[in-house]
Structure formats: C-alpha cells, structure tokens
C-alpha cells in the first residue's frame, strides 16, 4: 500500500512537472514567436511601444517594417505631413505616427526595397529630423 502511494505520488509529481514544462514551453512560444518587437536589429532591441507595435503588425503579416525615430514631432500638423508624404508611396502598406514616443512605423510590402535615404528625405521635407531607422524583415 505504502509502495503504491509512493509510486502514485511520484507519477503525479512527474506528470505535473511535465505539464508545467509543457506550459512553460507554450509560454515561451507565446512570448517569442509572432512578437516582432522582441527581435534585435543590428544588435539593438527595437525601441517601440510594444502594444502599439504588435497592433501595427497584426494585420500586415509578412510585410517589412521600418521603425523611424523622429525629432521635432510635437503636434498633429507634423504627423499629418508625414502621413501624407509616405501615403503617396504605393509600396507602403501601413503608416503609424506615435507622437508620444516620436516614432513612425512604416509597413512595406514584402517585395519592397527599403531605402533609408528615401525615408530620411521624406521626414526632412516635413521639417523634422531622423535620428534612427530600424528595419525588420529585410
């Protein structure tokens, strides 16, 4: 009886450990798969508002993403100008301007070549300055 109890307890412990490990693995998969914001670009983590970024990429799977850090973007007029400039490019599938973080997210079609000089020029044409561009999916 005692041996049966010990064996049963051992089986339950092993089963629960296995379940926990499986759950942990699932958690890891949730954390790292499909969450582009955790990718590194040139050895640097993406500097983005995680929730905003995940929401941005959710409906453009497979597209390349450019995260542009912009100086001087303090009001809606700046944001509208940027949206208008990039909106003319038919290779850009989605645009998001985040005034709070000073970031512009650009979704490019998967076959598009991302020209960083072009991005910087559009920002400059709006009277603003680019300090960094991080590209995912290139």
């Amino acid at each position: 009886m005692k041996t049966t109890l010990i064996l049963g307890a051992t089986l339950i412990f092993l089963a629960s450990t296995s379940q926990a490990q499986h759950h942990h693995n699932m958690h890891d998969m949730h954390s790292h798969e499909g969450h582009m914001h955790e990718q590194m670009v040139d050895g640097k983590a993406l500097e983005v508002d995680v929730e905003r970024f995940d929401n941005f990429v959710s409906d453009i799977p497979g597209d390349k993403i450019a995260v542009v850090s912009v100086q001087g973007m303090v009001c809606d007029f700046c944001a509208r100008g940027i949206e208008k400039s990039f909106g003319k490019n038919n290779q850009i599938s989605k645009i998001d301007v985040d005034l709070a973080s000073g970031k512009v997210l650009l979704g490019f079609q998967s076959d598009a070549e991302i020209d960083q000089a072009y991005i910087e020029k559009q920002i400059l044409n709006n009277g603003l300055n680019t300090t960094a561009i991080q590209v995912l999916g290139d």
Binding site: Q71, V74, G102, G127, L128
Partner: peptide, 12 residues
C-alpha cells in the same frame, strides 16, 4: 520665411 528651426526629441 523660416529663418531657423531646431528639433529635439521632445520639442521644436
């Protein structure tokens, strides 16, 4: 005419 503009991360 815009004589001068200075942009920073949080200001213009």
């Amino acid at each position: 005419y815009l004589l001068h503009r200075k942009n920073t991360a949080t200001s213009q």
